[in-house]
Nucleic acid binder design. Structure first.
Lengths: 146, 146
DNA sequence: TAAAGTTGTAACCACTCAGCTTACAACTTA
DNA sequence: TAAGTTGTAAGCTGAGTGGTTACAACTTTA
């Protein structure tokens, strides 16, 4: 089980937009080249980021731009934007047919629920701690040291 | 994306073993009845729990028993036992072909890695906080209040 | 106005994985 | 020996992920 690659791809894309969009047109084709991901997938990710108000894109003219500063975008915002985890279902899967005639079967779901939601929240809170501006800074530092 | 139902099923199973194994033989057939999960799946889960030293089972005689006290088993132990997340790969999927000719492409993986591992660790640490004995206590309390 | 380049999106395909099911050997107990 | 149980292999189905082709909608430039 893994969280969809669209998430790390989205972070990669946003980093590229920040680094390159002032100098050149950052198209889905260009982003495909950097990420190694199919351009249609890139466009789908961009579309989700656009719906979340993170980037802006335009038909025809092309080139993605940030809709707000990377310091105002956290890893969690990206995680939510690309729908890593279904909000209805949650991170942990419960089997749907426990036996209501069994005292354990009809109650265990409820007992586990709070704790598993807490674990999911711990994951998500950790993602909230990192702004994408930090990712870009780290990336720039590593590049300058190469 | 969801963490496999085998995890919540395993917790369900262990709760049943604790509650019923003193009075009756808790077979895969019985556990299938309570969880609603196919008996072969139950046996597979039991087999993984056995490998992790959490339960003991025997051919022929049948009936699963706890190999150690539930107060010594956390949700994390179960999560590891049923292999929810591949230890090699980690929780977050990275696309495998970033472009090494792009300064972002060849470094972004490394930049994200520490933070994403941290988020995964936050999830897992939260699971370590709950012993299965607490799950059983809560379940018993709810049953007594029904 | 026409041509070229780009995004948005639908449709289909391939691959993987989870869970279900059947089947049967190995084992224990009565 | 017979009945019941676990361990496990093999094959199936359905869902989900990502890749690909295709094309309409749109913008810009010649």
């Amino acid at each position: 089980m893994q969280i969809t690659g669209k998430f790390t791809t989205a972070v990669h894309i946003l980093t590229c937009i920040e680094m390159f969009s002032s100098e050149m047109r950052v198209t889905s084709e260009f982003l495909s080249g950097s990420t190694g991901v199919n351009p249609v997938i890139v466009r789908n990710v961009l579309s989700q980021l656009k719906s979340a108000g993170i980037v802006s894109t335009r038909r025809g003219s092309g080139g993605a731009h940030l809709a707000r500063s990377l310091s105002e975008i956290t890893l969690y915002d990206v995680y939510k934007a690309v729908d890593c985890v279904d909000s209805e279902e949650g991170l942990f899967h419960f089997h749907e047919n426990p036996n209501a005639d069994c005292p354990v079967g009809r109650n265990i779901h409820r007992v586990m629920d709070g704790r598993l939601s807490g674990a999911q929240a711990a994951l998500e809170n950790e993602l909230k701690k990192t702004a994408l501006s930090e990712i870009v800074e780290d990336t720039k530092r590593i590049i300058s040291e190469e």
